[in-house]
């Protein structure tokens, strides 16, 4: 009698223990599932962003060397003599009104001092302020592929007010290209090409490295200079720099 009741209790306890263990393992499994779910989501999100930012499935190419303010690269657009004692680098934005103000002076100065100053133009479109500045830079670069960078550069500054608020600038710029006697189809394909996009992006990166605060920013022989947009300030600056070298 005693024996039987003992066995019964024993059995009951055993059954209970098994139940607790079952419940524990079910809870454990649920926990594993929940942690697993979050882990999968985090891995997918982080991994996906990492893959995309590495240029996965994109037009991204290995970044070219970013030029510095006291160095001219083969990709740079330059005017004046390469052997000139001075080098003037401008970071500019085709849509920025101040850059438009400087344009005439800079053009005259670089022509008058073409033997003394090696002028370099780099794009620094302020995309958030000027939505058309970057497309304008692409247009100038695309024209440059057909040998007319400076012609497009001049046209863009001269007609800044005409295209600055345009919505479909691509067709406007196409019109300019045709006006300059460029091949329109070639211009369109260059305008959209990753080579042109990357060139502008490289210029921007160069300006960022140089800590360009705004546009236009000038560097004379690697030193940041801030002349007024009149001819006299520019020529004084250049004459002083030439005198200092002698």
């Amino acid at each position: 009698m005693d024996d039987i009741s003992f066995t019964k209790r024993e059995r009951r306890e055993e059954r209970k223990a098994v139940q607790v263990a079952d419940r524990k393992s079910a809870a454990y499994q649920e926990k594993v599932q929940r942690v697993g779910l979050w882990a999968v989501v985090v891995v997918l999100v982080v991994g996906g962003v990492w893959y995309l930012s590495r240029g996965g499935g994109s037009s991204g190419q290995p970044g070219p060397v970013v030029p510095t303010v006291n160095q001219v690269t083969a990709d740079d657009w330059t005017a004046g003599s390469a052997d000139a004692p001075l080098m003037l680098v401008e970071y500019s934005d085709f849509q920025c009104p101040a850059c438009g103000n400087y344009y005439t002076t800079v053009k005259k100065v670089t022509q008058d001092f073409s033997n003394q100053v090696h002028f370099v133009y780099r794009n620094f479109p302020l995309r958030t302020l000027h939505p058309n500045a970057e497309p304008a830079a692409w247009a100038a670069e695309a024209a440059g592929r057909q040998g007319k960078f400076w012609e497009m550069h001049d046209l863009l500054f001269e007609r800044q007010s005409q295209w600055a608020d345009n919505l479909n600038t691509k067709s406007t710029f196409h019109g300019y290209a045709v006006e300059l006697g460029l091949d329109g189809n070639q211009f369109d394909s260059d305008y959209s090409s990753s080579a042109v996009r990357n060139k502008v992006a490289t210029d921007v990166a160069s300006g960022t490295v140089a800590k360009v605060p705004g546009t236009p920013t000038f560097f004379l022989n690697g030193q940041k200079v801030s002349p007024s947009p009149d001819y006299a300030s520019f020529s004084t600056l250049i004459n002083d720099a030439l005198a200092a070298q002698k």
Partner: peptide, 10 residues
Amino acid sequence: IKHFEGLAPN
């Protein structure tokens, strides 16, 4: 990402 890189998407 393309926007910040200044590249046009494919």
